[in-house]
Design a protein around this nucleic acid. Structure first.
Lengths: 340, 340
DNA sequence: CTGAAAGCGCTTACAG
DNA sequence: CTGAAAGCGCTTACAG
């Protein structure tokens, strides 16, 4: 069943049939009625490939998450992002093509797709600080938006949560709780998120006149195991608090602290980042910085669709605020004296 | 840059250029050389829509996960499935289109897509026992494969883990540990997985001559909160063990047990199902049934691709074995006497 | 408001 | 092994 046949059955030309299917207002009520009836009757659905070829648009957007296998397994952050992008797309009548791409060969495939006209635009999620895919996209003409900001390049559209301010707030909260030897477990420093959260940590300390001690900084690679090991490295330096750059690493830190017999928050206060479902269920429940992932995903697709449909518009730089969620791991219930 | 131009630059016809691009063996080495060189030089990528229209195949498969928002957030199972399907597709030069579809309106959209020729085949993940999408697919001609078996319909191709045997093994393990009042927290009973895991539980008890007491069965809806509440309902009936139909509910059960001051496994042994990353990190680490999700995802795409490329082949019914993973929550370290 | 026609960029019998 | 040609099923100026 194709347009031709629908047109014939409706007693109009293919052009007119096409117009009613695409909601073109320049159609008589009568013709519209007839075509719609036949479409319903025949259960007609236009062929996507033909449409894509003729119109130059496919009504699908690509979502690429350049994250290794491991991260996706354990970090709900990615799941939430995928879910929110998927549902926002569906709500706007777009479909989403997904690539979870770490290895180089998979990425090469994506480079191809991007040039094949298979998608109308792309959303690139948690990228490294200088992602080759972003470079390629920049050189091409496909609309795209990055999740995570690109301070280095003013031409990149992005939507992001404000990691620097978030981390800053996390550490300020610990300072407010009276902690003075505040350690941090960092994410990978080739990652924008990893870098920003460390910067926020340093800013907060400096602002308070406290030194930034390298002994109190350990890399946790955004993984639970990494958080565990990092905490073990930090412990000998007697921190009284730790800011973990994500919830997962905080889980590892909690485990390391527990294993040495210390208590959270009495001996060591912990603040994390992301506010994934893990945080609320940790023992003790984690004080953490809420990252508006759902909103980020929604805005990314809405912005991208606007870029696709109204190509002339100005650059998008959307920075969403984070929020401190106070639970039990920071000792907010125990003391209220200010160190700063 | 299109095929026409590539052909011209290579000094061959469009047909020949197309042949080398599609690896047709019937091309002279000379022509092949020339075209390949030009393709590389011009960085040519064939237009996907045109290809799809002409060839009738798009080289993309659809993955639909009819799961609510909540489940995807908290259950790593879905993430792992998405990841494994995605990587298997990429490895076979297919792309994946993703739908995470709960609400009916989103599903209607999928019905359209399926008929639009946008995908060559579909994988339908954790479905309800009588999914309307599956019914529609059955009526159409698009190759598809279900994750989860369809005992009710012999024409449905599927790949699945053997939930009945898995649950059976879980409960037998508890019996072996000397437990006799074994409760279960079930998944939704409109879910194949939920039903099967309950069946496995009942089989194991009956096989052992033990009664199936309705007081020892509580629904947990596959969620953490549901598991918590279910465990609270079970506790007054003094179970000495509980089989939770997934890891997440086991986490909730653990929390409920802890809240009443009872110990795991001394007072109540716990066995879960799925072996998601959560299980190993629980307190205490959960004994659970490993579900080979990664393998399921891989096999689903490999089978689907075979169905797409060699349409005549026989039905596929692939049932993968599960495996009991013994950790600390079942008391295997405490006693070894057999009750049965 | 409508239709005839060109065109989107490929693949694939077909004939040689 | 190769090319001319038909065709995949739409959209969209264009002219009326």
């Amino acid at each position: 069943m194709n347009l031709e046949q629908i047109a014939k059955l409706s007693g109009v030309s293919r052009s007119t049939a096409s117009r009613v299917i695409n909601n073109d207002p320049n159609v008589s009520d009568n013709a519209r009625e007839n075509v719609k009836r036949i479409v319903r009757l025949m259960n007609y659905v236009p062929n996507a490939a033909a449409r894509g070829l003729a119109a130059g648009r496919t009504q699908v957007i690509g979502l690429v998450i350049p994250t290794g296998v491991s991260a996706l397994f354990s970090d709900p952050y990615c799941s939430i992002l995928i879910q929110s992008v998927s549902s926002a797309c569906n709500a706007h009548n777009y479909s989403v093509m997904l690539w979870i791409a770490q290895p180089e060969y998979e990425r090469r495939q994506i480079h191809q797709i991007v040039r094949s006209g298979a998608i109308d635009g792309a959303i690139i999620a948690p990228t490294l600080a200088n992602d080759t895919l972003v470079q390629a996209l920049l050189a091409g003409s496909l609309p795209f938006i990055v999740i995570g900001h690109y301070p280095a390049n003013g031409r990149v559209n992005y939507v992001d949560a404000d990691d620097i301010l978030g981390a800053h707030e996390a550490v300020r909260h610990l300072l407010r709780m009276g902690r003075t030897r505040i350690a941090t477990i960092t994410g990978p420093q080739n990652t924008i998120t990893g870098i920003d959260r460390l910067m926020g940590y340093m800013h907060a300390l400096r602002e308070c006149g406290l030194p930034v001690e390298s002994d109190l900084i350990a890399a946790g690679g955004f993984s639970e195991g990494g958080g565990y090991i990092a905490m073990q490295q930090l412990l000998p330096h007697r921190p009284d608090a730790v800011f973990a750059a994500n919830d997962i690493m905080a889980m590892g830190a909690l485990r390391a602290i527990r294993d040495t017999g210390l208590r959270v928050p009495q001996d060591i206060a912990v603040v994390a980042f992301d506010d994934t479902p893990l945080a609320a269920r940790a023992e003790p429940p984690l004080t953490t910085i809420h990252r508006p992932t759902h909103q980020v995903g929604n805005l990314a697709v809405e912005t991208l669709i606007e870029m696709i449909e109204y190509p002339k518009s100005s650059p998008y730089r959307i920075m969403l605020p984070t929020e401190l969620i106070i639970r039990s791991s920071c000792g907010a219930a125990f003391k209220e004296k200010l160190a700063c």
